[in-house]
Amino acid sequence: MTEDRLLQVRPAGQHALLVQLPDAERTGAFHAELLRRRAAGTLPPVAEIVPGARTVLLDGVPDPGELARRLADWDVPSRPADDGGVVEIHVRYDGPDLADVAALWGIGTGEVAARHSSYTYRVAFCGFAPGFGYLTGLPPHLNVPRRDTPRTRVPAGAVALAGPYSAVYPRATPGGWQIIGTMPDPAPLWDLTRAEPALLTPGTRVRFVAEDGAA
């Protein structure tokens, strides 16, 4: 049985491994441990460390077999809930799907802001577009489905929900998530003039701060 095996290593071609973990929390802990070992210089060469929902992809690995053997011996400490800094994102809770989300949550439209901004989130992984982070932190009973019909254009700065995730759109794209609010100045989400262009890198903790809708 594999139930007590934390890491399940799957082949992904000649130069990569896909490491699967039992849940989001341990995926985050494993990702943090990879970054810690890379910073300490004890990780073999890896070009890309790409977390997913339940996996971390290690790509650009000269010898995946050797790395897989080493991973088998890893002890992955759980991640403290309060490690690292917190990015604050100001939000006007004025999205077009606010009423739908309120109905799904069984609360009033005016209560969504307080509820959504009461949790601390963490960037589980990125994808879809540069700087688009998938944030975990909503409790399961507040998960919402995607919209039946995606929008052809979701504006930059849209704060939106789908499944277990919250996200802020770094730029205008099509999208099927439920839009609950707006980050008034989304430019910092993806800024190529910074050494680290993404504001929401995997592992980063995030708090949403409700702004008064009246400008």
Binding site: A12, E48, G52, A53, G127, F128
Partner: peptide, 29 residues
């Protein structure tokens, strides 16, 4: 659940026809 994708990955969408990921492929799928 969304996971990292490598160059050359043969992904199989719901229609069952394999897609070989080339250079501008999405990083997760």
């Amino acid at each position: 659940p969304s996971e990292g994708m490598v160059l050359g990955a043969v992904q199989v969408p719901p229609d069952g026809r394999p897609v070989v990921f080339l250079h501008d492929h999405p990083t997760t799928g």
